[in-house]
Design a protein around this nucleic acid. Structure first.
Lengths: 136, 136
DNA sequence: ATTTTTATAAGAATGATTACGATTTACATT
DNA sequence: AATGTAAATCGTAATCATTCTTATAAAAAT
């Protein structure tokens, strides 16, 4: 995922183009790591001092729904990062300090035996947590 | 994990025995599934009408720290269940409606290649989400 | 240029969780 | 059995992340 394809998705889906939305995507593209709503807000308010928290949250969830952002959660806060370049299903190794990630290609679901048929699987989560080199 | 060994851990670690704590553990032992703080509070207040939320949260986190309860999170709420009988490391298939679980013996970490040495791994999470037979 | 639709601001509301001073209780010791 | 002390609990308020409401502003369509 990159800035132009993200903005194209917005356009194709009938959402409006705004400078704030572009800046938001550009920020994620630059950071390439998981960011909390608070971090995003702090950054955006440097450029747009009056920007409201609601706008942040609304756009974060919209972008997640459109597949532009990936979402996870730790320490009681949702976090978002720009969807990885690979469209393929993947998982992450995540630095709990700074949100930087490394991709994991293997998916445990490929090696897991079949379960009882009366349990309808709707999703799964596999994440490895730690501290990246920078944060140690 | 069962009621008596849970209460023994409490005693051995120097924590006090209270009827509320016993009832709490008994409740988890009976339910054998993930419960939110709110569910626990609702249940406990039937017996102890004035029971404070603080007591619930304090005991839930204490029991988690003591290994009596396992913790996870979904839909913005922390959830707890009695630690599984097996002391061995394990994962869960979780019904997002009722919190019932099935155990997964295999751990993806066993098959994952070694990572860059400059990333210190401190934990991981593997959970499969779905709907159990009862909830479909 | 005007209309229509969507995005945004500002602040209040909500829901989960934590914090805190005052009071009570468990339990070891007398 | 009475007492002392630390821990547990209550009642309530505070905090934190997130969502809702309503009025206004901006983008897209006509």
């Amino acid at each position: 995922m990159n800035v132009s394809s993200a903005l194209e998705i917005l356009k194709n889906e009938g959402y409006k183009y705004t400078e704030k939305r572009e800046d938001l995507v550009v920020f994620f593209a630059k950071e390439k790591r998981y960011l909390s709503a608070r971090e995003v807000l702090t950054y955006m308010q440097k450029t747009y001092p009056g920007m409201s928290v609601d706008t942040i949250y609304r756009n974060l969830t919209l972008f997640r729904d459109l597949g532009i952002l990936e979402e996870t959660e730790w320490n009681g806060e949702k976090r978002y990062r720009l969807s990885c370049a690979t469209d393929a299903h993947h998982h992450h190794l995540i630095c709990l300090d700074c949100g930087r990630t490394r991709q994991i290609e293997a998916c445990p679901m490929d090696n897991i035996p079949v379960y009882d048929s009366d349990f309808e699987v709707v999703g799964h989560k596999f994440e490895i947590y730690g501290k990246c080199g920078e944060c140690q």
